[in-house]
Design a protein around this nucleic acid. Sequence first.
DNA 1: GGATAGGCGGAAAACGAATGAAAGCAGCGA
DNA 2: TCGCTGCTTTCATTCGTTTTCCGCCTATCC
Lengths: 346, 346
Amino acid sequence: MPHPARPTVTLREVAAAAGVSVATASRVLGGSARTVSAENARKVLEAASELRYTADVAARAMRRKSDSIALVADDLTTPSIAQVVAAMERQARTVDAFVTVSAAGGDTRRQLETVRTVCAFRPRALVITSSWAATTAYGARLAEELHAYERRGGRVVIYGDMDAPFDAISVDDRGSARLMGAHLAATGHRRIAILAGTRERTFAAARTTGFLEGLLGGGVDVRDIRVIDCPVSRAGGYAATSRLLEESPGEFDALMAVNDTIAVGALSACRAAGVDVPGRLSVTGFDDIPLAADVTPRLTTVALPFAEIGERSIRLALTVAGRPDRPGVRRTVIGRLMVRQSSKVI
Amino acid sequence: MPHPARPTVTLREVAAAAGVSVATASRVLGGSARTVSAENARKVLEAASELRYTADVAARAMRRKSDSIALVADDLTTPSIAQVVAAMERQARTVDAFVTVSAAGGDTRRQLETVRTVCAFRPRALVITSSWAATTAYGARLAEELHAYERRGGRVVIYGDMDAPFDAISVDDRGSARLMGAHLAATGHRRIAILAGTRERTFAAARTTGFLEGLLGGGVDVRDIRVIDCPVSRAGGYAATSRLLEESPGEFDALMAVNDTIAVGALSACRAAGVDVPGRLSVTGFDDIPLAADVTPRLTTVALPFAEIGERSIRLALTVAGRPDRPGVRRTVIGRLMVRQSSKVI
DNA sequence: GGATAGGCGGAAAACGAATGAAAGCAGCGA
DNA sequence: TCGCTGCTTTCATTCGTTTTCCGCCTATCC
């Protein structure tokens, strides 16, 4: 055969072209500790670039630790996650690592499935967002799976909370939410409705608690606060707010949402119902997604340092594993109050 | 050693636990065509689940085609891409494939680098978004790289345009934009400014052309149209609009942006300058990102079927490759006009 | 000048899974 | 009893790379 249709160009061919052994070629291209003569190194590099050689990671992964980091996120369409992912990408690039992303949207069961799938790639580290309560059967099995992965030499980093000793970077949702509660109380708001999302979302529960603490600490009467569950989505915020405005018009002077997406839905409902924001009702969000500054009125919210979160997650993921049974390292970041036009001083 | 700390659980161990050979275990777990007795199959499956075995994709990829599909996107934080990615995920899941995502944000050079990196994973197919002109040196090398990948048996699907015979799914940007141009002309707009993005973005150029065609076809005088380049971002739209409103106030009755993000920036600039939209100026976007319905006034735009795009991309990626030199299959989708409050009838 | 490091290259053994070839085995007819 | 068929299982090889081990050559020191 004069021109065998090669499936891919291998190290063997590079070595042959350079006139050295595969071992030598591997040492040059793979960044080995062993030294290779300058002359041979040059020839190998030349041949590799000539043949457009790229090492097959699959084969490489068999003998060497991989440099891919797997991110298992709930939902990639969430604006906040997108920002975190982008930051991770940037950070990983600086250390020649590589981030693969997969969505496990939904629940702990899907998370478990996805983790198993990603583990098959034998990544160097696993970053997993956890916004679901780990109390279900699947949650426990998930933790078990992650532990098994760590025992096999992997690194696990949680973004969010989990009742298990993994390294974690988490937002102090409760403390950050307290800031917002205190702010509304301080600016004279006294009758508050909280759009609390759903109970299974741990961040939603923590933020609701923080809101309450801040409000109560600022002198708001607990009987003047109403906590309303709703789906964590724009539509959820819209529906809950519409219902609220219809059933008890004028009863509240502030509406606090556990995230910006819900808050945007709420704003939309207010506009539809002809309720002036912030004239008759202050509305606040949480996250400071890019959209928050673009809605009308611009949304008062709590800004979270997503870029920092992404960067730190990767840094944590790349530190070498310590003792298998050491307690998890936990980094906490706190949000910053962003007062804009959707809330006012009463 | 009673308990050697294994880095990973291998097929050999599963086979040993089940009391069969690795070959048999492989056939059971790998879904081979060859038949295995029910009794042995049961034992293998039992052992595998007991040991929490997951096949190492790296090793598997050496003999068999992988199930992973790599997506190389420009920028994952773009709302439209996020929707496409989510749809791809869903579709891939239905056929037991697996999508890995990586951002190559920026330019063709970074795209080339990223493609080379993900090719090393030997994915089954490569879906690449292409919104950058392929006329640069890197663009040509990118096409070359992709061809090499196809020759090695991979599938390449382009989302967007490319002057190369790959399978592609693309939006008829020009035709869709024509709808918007025609609509504005028909509703009485006569003096138009187009926020055209940058020339290197192929979608921006196509949409601008479509706008022009629609407007001219509707009787707008070409001398009353102004095309303004600007960065493809909210800030870019804001700055360009501010400048425009300052330099030539009242000169235009409509502002057409090549995407929603720019349009949102434009709306913001109008609000800042005290220009009533749509009273004094109609503003339109393109894409129908979720945000479009949440800004005030709600944005008139062209809705693109992102979910369909994502789903079709994956379907295309999973069809078996035909003859290496066959012309690329090209699927085109067209947008739908969404008339909302940011434009009016004059 | 000879012994001894030490640098460097190459052959070959992994790594984990897939697979073609070959072997084992039961049933059947001659 | 033998040979054949059809089905299942095992053996041995393969994939592309890294890494270990061994041997060669040169430089250094006594």
